[in-house]
Simulated scan of single mutants.
Amino acid sequence: MEKFIPAEDDTMTLTFDDGVEMECAVVAVFPVGEKNYIALLPLEAQDKEEAEVYIYRIIADNEDDVQLENIESDEEWEIVADAYDEFMDNEEFEELFED
């Protein structure tokens, strides 16, 4: 899977263990090693620059059946968070030259 930046209206609803639902914008889908990850930003976030981004591992049996898994290990989290930060830095850098 190559890095993917979704359309502005791509959203996903997260349902937490306590039943609370949160509508999120899909920020990016990106590979790290042989696994794929998704970054989600809550739509209700007031300050998009400072809002918490949720990152999950994607498990896809096929195109119609996609599940999200929490990243449990600190080591995997560090690797994925660094990859996300680098991905976003590259996107911001490219946007500077598009304007």
Rank of each mutant, 00 (worst) to 15 (best):
K3G: 09
Y56W: 02
K3D: 13
E2G: 11
G19K: 04
N90T: 09
I55P: 01
L43F: 02
E49G: 07
L41G: 03
K48W: 04
V27P: 04
M12R: 15
I55R: 06
E44T: 10
Q67K: 14
A39R: 03
L96Y: 11
D85E: 15
V29S: 01
A83F: 05
E76R: 09
L14I: 03
V32G: 01
Y37D: 00
A81C: 07
D74K: 14
V66H: 05
E8Q: 14
E49S: 13
G33A: 03
Y84Q: 00
D61N: 10
D18S: 01
D99C: 05
I5Y: 07
V32R: 06
E34W: 09
Y54V: 07
D17P: 00
R57K: 15
E91P: 04
M88A: 06
D85V: 08
E72A: 07
E63H: 13
A81T: 07
I71H: 05
I58M: 00
E44A: 12
I58P: 04
I59L: 10
K3C: 12
A7F: 14
V26A: 03
E34S: 15
A7W: 10
F93K: 13
D17C: 07
R57N: 12
T11S: 03
V27M: 04
E98K: 15
G33W: 03
V29C: 02
E86Q: 15
E91F: 08
M88L: 09
L14E: 03
L40Y: 00
V29P: 00
E34F: 12
I58K: 06
A81M: 06
A81V: 09
F30M: 03
L40Q: 00
A39T: 05
C24N: 09
D47T: 05
V29G: 00
M12N: 11
I79W: 02
Q67C: 10
I59C: 07
Y84K: 04
D85A: 12
A7I: 11
E91R: 12
F87G: 05
V32A: 01
E92G: 05
V20Y: 08
D9M: 10
